[in-house]
Amino acid sequence: MEDRLFYNEVLTDHNKHPYHKCELDHPDLMLEGVNPSCGDDIYLQLKMDGDIIADGAFVGDGCAISQASTDIMLEMIIGRTKQEAIRLADIFAKMIRDEATEEDIEELEEAGALKDVAKMPARVKCAALGWRTLKEMLEKA
């Protein structure tokens, strides 16, 4: 697997300069997500305005894939409804199982930059961590 395809600019940028890596003041929803086998760890926080995700942030430690993927995710879901966010999480899950269509990937905007992860079974969990945690959190809320 050629890494230049993979560690592309979108990913390295979000890893180096995450927009949403911080703590929110009074988050409405919080959930910690971990990958026990590799130690990736994120703590996801959301502020809700009714059904709309008004703001979101995360703190944590992990590989560039897990961190960048979470940051990209937050960028996308802030301002959307809970239902839309869950739908995007499902599309993302499809993409990293290599089951997504072109249109699906287009809908994922920047998160589509992670599509090659489908070819790296060892890293699928890293990419999925943020989205998996988000979905769990929203479905519980």
């Binding site: 890494d3 993979f6 560690y7 990736d40 992990g62 590989c63 560039a64």
Partner: peptide, 10 residues
Amino acid sequence: DVHPHDVAGI
């Protein structure tokens, strides 16, 4: 600045 999983990945 580089997580070990990314080191091993590269």
